[in-house]
Design a binder for these strands. Structure first.
Lengths: 191, 191
DNA sequence: TTCATTAGTTAACCTAGGTGAATGCAAGAC
DNA sequence: GTCTTGCATTCACCTAGGTTAACTAATGAA
């Protein structure tokens, strides 16, 4: 089977094509135009999204009004506010499309259905939240243990696709610095 | 019932004294002497601990050999490497006692038993991991959106117990700064 | 086409926090 | 009791990244 979602799930759990097709029938295809919202801060998160094409990103806005990019999801990655999705509390994140994107979405109700009929999915989604947790922990230690330059190099190495397809000011925000500083770092590096 | 663990669990889920007593029979009391380890980096986490007295803290060590405090657990709080505990992968954290401490521990096996016999516990522990995840997310945005001084003030306000009972260099590390800088900040504030 | 935005770059200057070293003080070890 | 070790403080100096502002190039709407 050549479906990218199937491949993505297969990386984490064992699942038959049959079960996957059942799962797929619970999802819906959808589109998000450039700059349109997938999740609005203050709403309860109803869907989890798999990015088929394009790029989505999540961010918070602090009391000073500054935006902080938290996650960037390129092709073949999942994105949502997992905490809000699982707890059904309101989201503190916004998720928006950086460019026109095609996504496959799964609602909370159908997520429950998938878990009930295909037990392995419970595990798959528990792994998703665990990974999100670990990502966040890693991020904290990366901020504390590395300079912005080191964090940028790390990103270039582990996520070249993000570097290629995302405007720099999003990347700067994701790294926790200003666009001018990223520009300065890049200048220094590519000399 | 006057048991602090009962109180702590009651804050998150509804549970009868009967069920709680069953749960309690699955736990063990233990002690950690000052500077002794509860969890060693590289081991699989076998226990989750409730701090009855004393203070425990978790930290990572980066490639440069610098220590970064991740969590500080005073009386009546839980501590463990939840990721390692649930996934049974090796831990990247060390957890040590800051002072002689009394803890109540629950093993992975007994955790499974508790979940099987008292379904509400599954929820309780899912909430623990969700909260840990949210804490970590909040921490990232606090680092990006606030100065060390603001982070310190926030800690004083929301966690005075930590300020009172933990030596300053641990707090500095938790805030992501050096002890000298915390000293400077405190001097500036208390003038 | 033209005018207005938005993105990226550069540069001068500023500041929060790091670094290294010195000092004083309290607590264990013996 | 002295010796040592660890913690907090202070100070002088340094540096990564923020700030402001100017300039350019690219995109987009009318």
């Amino acid at each position: 089977m050549n479906n990218p979602i199937y491949k993505n799930i297969k990386e984490k759990i064992n699942i038959s094509e049959q079960d996957f097709n059942n799962f797929l029938s619970l999802t819906k295809n959808s589109q998000v135009k450039k700059h349109d919202f997938f999740i609005h801060e203050g709403d309860v998160t109803k869907y989890i999204a798999f990015v088929k094409s394009g790029v989505l990103y999540s961010y918070t806005v602090d009391k000073k009004g500054d935006k902080h990019v938290v996650q960037i999801a390129v092709k073949n990655h999942w994105i949502s506010d997992l905490f809000s999705f699982f707890s059904q509390e309101v989201s503190v994140f916004n998720i928006q499309a950086i460019e026109d994107s095609e996504i496959t979405i799964l609602s909370k109700d159908n997520f429950e259905k998938a878990c009930n009929t295909i037990p392995a999915f419970e595990k798959f989604f528990r792994i998703l939240i665990q990974n999100a947790y670990v990502d966040s922990l890693r991020r904290v230690s990366r901020i504390y243990g590395n300079s912005a330059e080191e964090r940028y190099l790390k990103l270039v190495k582990t996520n070249p696709q993000i570097i290629q397809s995302v405007p720099q000011h999003y990347i700067a925000s994701y790294l926790g610095i200003k666009p001018q500083s990223l520009s300065r770092i890049r200048k220094k590096l590519y000399n």
